[in-house]
Simulated assay, not measured.
Amino acid sequence: MWGKLLGGLFGLAMFKIPGLIAGVFIGHWFDRGMKQQFEQAGGFAGLKRDQGDAQGLFMYSTFAVMGHLAKADGVVTPAHIDKAVAFMQQLGLGAAQQQEAQRAFREGKAADFPLLQQLQTLRQAFRWRPDLLQMFLEIQISVAYVDGRLSDIELKLLQQVAGALAISNTRLQYLLGRFEAEARFSQRQTQQTPAADAVADAYQLLGVAQSCSDSELKKAYKKQMSQHHPDKLVSQGLPKEMLELANQKTQQIQAAYELLKQHRG
């Protein structure tokens, strides 16, 4: 229908009545081709199936790459195991889902795990959803920092992950700094620390300089909230089990912004 309608309107605008007839005829064949492709994909059921497949791909890739990162330094430490278990619990995975996650983690640890191939498949599935790909990278950054430091091997591996997802090294360096600031800011919320330290971390968390204007600060805050908004990410394919991760991100962003507004008076 849309092909005939648009083709007819375009033909009418360009060549009057003859163009209208030709446009409708061409649009008819376009509609037929699109209809066949849609039916071959399973119609609306296919769209639903593809969404589920994409979420499964995201979940599998998360735990497989997590396992690969855990083995980056040659041995999986107890801290990495604890991180994976805690992550599964945080997501509220059922027994069957935990088994699938554990299987993905084990496969990711294997020496012959096709890391780049897996990441390319992930990027292809979410190529129009850069916020989701960034969320994936942020999860892997948290895994790399599980022991409180980032080794050269882990950094190199994160660079490979970022590159395969078409995320620049500059962006990766920003996300690494942001993660460190977020971790410190979260810790300082529960401790009595100098206000200046918390303020500095809040600026870094939001990705702006302390000399920024109020409007620049607000713009950065809105951008961060948009990138990590749970409803937006879930609608784009983030597994619902990971909704709490996005909630935590937005809570930290909100807390940082509120602190800076108070600090600025």
Rank of each mutant, 00 (worst) to 15 (best):
D197E: 10
L9M: 05
R103C: 13
L116A: 07
A45I: 12
E154K: 11
M225E: 06
R32P: 02
A41D: 07
L175W: 08
G108R: 04
R178C: 03
I139A: 13
A111K: 15
A195S: 10
Q251T: 06
F185C: 01
A96L: 02
A110Y: 05
Q90A: 14
Q97A: 08
L238I: 03
G94L: 00
Q248W: 02
Y174I: 13
G108M: 05
V65F: 00
L93P: 00
G3V: 02
I81Y: 12
T250F: 03
F25T: 08
L165T: 06
K83M: 11
G52K: 00
L233F: 14
L122A: 01
K71Y: 02
A202P: 01
Q51F: 09
K71H: 08
Q204T: 09
K109P: 08
A79G: 04
T193S: 08
Q117G: 13
G56N: 11
V143D: 00
G19F: 12
V234D: 14
L132E: 00
V199D: 05
R106C: 04
V161S: 12
D131H: 01
Q118N: 15
E182F: 04
L260A: 04
T170L: 11
A181S: 06
I81W: 12
H263C: 12
R184P: 09
Q120R: 11
G207W: 04
D201E: 05
Q192Y: 07
A84T: 15
R106S: 09
G43Y: 13
I17D: 12
D73S: 03
L158P: 08
F30T: 13
L57Q: 09
L233Q: 06
Q89I: 07
A22E: 13
L217Y: 00
L158D: 06
G265H: 07
R129M: 09
Q37L: 15
E107N: 12
D82P: 03
M59H: 13
L137Y: 05
N247W: 14
A54I: 09
V85H: 14
